[in-house]
Amino acid sequence: MDIRVDKDACVGCGLCVKDCPMHVYELQDNVSVPVRPNDCMGCLSCHEICPAQALEHRGIYPARRHYIDIKVCEMLRKVI
């Protein structure tokens, strides 16, 4: 699993360390490091909790999504 952490964005809160059911992350010098990326099961809980949107999992998409309102989609595309 290719997990990237945006080091500039990460505030070192450790919420991903706490929330990841597979213990993928560790905090090192106030930055999260995915030390066991191959254990990741792709649940993306870490994305949801990260306050800085610092995490990226290459090539994973949530399998089941809530329906997103068409008005919201319209607006999302236009926020610049």
């Binding site: 964005a9 800085a52 926020v79």
Partner: peptide, 18 residues
Amino acid sequence: TLELSRKSVCSECDRFMG
């Protein structure tokens, strides 16, 4: 067109948690 960050305020903040 411009490439701009689409992240939260935290991503621009220089504080750390402790």
